[in-house]
């Protein structure tokens, strides 16, 4: 039984905008065990990217705590914070803008090594960089090339190598394969899976693509307008989705199989922005299974089956 490496408690991130307070992340809580993957899925505006960035403190939390190996990392400052950064690293979505176009592959991968003075001398930096390139399957001959000379798949490998340079215990992957072609996606996902098996790295895998996450995650959390509406083990979520949004989301995925007839749930309306939300279930407007209780404010996360949590008045 593996240890719990991350505990997120009521984490919130609000932004002040001209129209009002934007509840990007609103009271999210979950646990992650070492060596496991939590998939966070949702559509635009659900707050999944903000969640990732708030956990890693690229954005400062408005409220709530994040415990990494028992320590509350939301309170860290200064040198302790910089030192802590070695533990959780991020793999970014855009293989074009996540790499400095003015630096070579080697320089990009070596930057964190230099920042934290993890090498004895130039030769050591070189050695570590090449080793990282090997780990992610980048041929040494790309060592002195620039990102724009390489394709999306290779650039993403550079991003992963860079993230691994500090030997983190956890990686937050923010849509790491969304910008890649289908056949390259598979290569990168396999790489990430191998790394997890070899190094026992924990992942928070953020994506809008449910089919990608099904293969990859142990647990999956579904987010809508800043709240976590459902969380369960991957297979359980796909077999027995409970929340109306999860059901609609799953039915909307086009499946490359013509032998199955599925009934698709088409949701009405648009995804709104989580600004100045009224005190009711925020999914109410698009929900096809409303009931009387839905006006009573925001439902809370309840366990409806072992390790299966849902936030919905229908199941309260």
């Amino acid at each position: 039984m593996s240890e719990t490496i991350l505990e997120v408690r009521n984490l919130s991130k609000f932004f002040s905008t001209k129209k009002g307070l934007l509840h990007a992340v609103d009271g999210v809580s979950f646990d992650l065990k070492a060596g496991k993957t939590l998939g966070v899925v949702g559509e635009s505006g659900c707050g999944k990217s903000t969640l990732g960035r708030t956990i890693i403190r690229l954005l400062e939390p408005t409220a709530g705590e994040v415990y990494f190996e028992g320590q509350d990392i939301t309170k860290l400052k200064g040198k302790t914070l910089i030192n802590f950064r070695k533990n959780i690293q991020m793999v970014f979505q855009d293989p074009f803008s996540s790499l400095d176009p003015r630096r070579t592959v080697a320089q990009i991968i070596a930057e964190p090594i230099h920042l934290h003075k993890l090498a004895k001398d130039k030769a050591d930096v070189e050695r570590q960089t090449l080793a990282l390139m090997d780990t992610v399957g980048l041929a040494h001959r790309w060592h002195n090339t620039y990102p724009h000379q390489l394709d999306g798949g290779r650039r993403q490998r550079i991003g992963i190598a860079r993230a691994l340079a500090l030997q983190p215990k956890m990686l937050i992957c923010d849509e790491p394969v969304s910008a890649l072609d289908v056949s390259i996606q598979a290569q990168i996902l396999n790489l990430l899976k191998e790394l997890q098996e070899e190094r026992n790295i924990s992942y928070i895998f953020i994506t809008h693509d449910l089919s990608v996450i099904y293969n990859f995650a142990d647990d999956i959390a579904v987010m809508y307008l800043g709240r976590m509406v459902e969380k369960a083990h991957a297979e359980e979520l796909f077999r027995n989705p409970v929340h109306p949004y999860t059901k609609a989301l799953l039915s909307a995925i086009p499946v490359p199989d013509i032998n199955r007839k599925r009934k698709r749930i088409i949701l009405e309306g648009e995804v709104v922005s989580p600004v100045n939300l009224p005190d009711e279930c925020r999914f109410k407007k698009r929900c096809n299974m409303k009931c009387d209780k839905c006006d009573n404010g925001e439902p809370t996360l309840k366990e409806v089956a072992p390790n299966h949590f849902v936030s919905c008045w229908l199941n309260d």
């Binding site: 960035r53 890693i56 690229l58 914070l81 910089i82 030192n83 950064r85 070695k86 690293q89 991020m90 970014f92 979505q93 855009d94 803008s97 996540s98 790499l99 400095d100 930057e111 964190p112 920042l115 934290h116 991003g159 860079r162 500090l166």
Partner: peptide, 22 residues
């Protein structure tokens, strides 16, 4: 607003280091 600036921050680079290097 480019992601490589975020990447540098997430690695622990200071504001000054980011301005100078990136």
């Amino acid at each position: 607003d480019q992601e490589y600036i975020e990447a540098a921050k997430s690695q622990g680079a200071s504001e000054l280091q980011i301005i100078v290097s990136h």
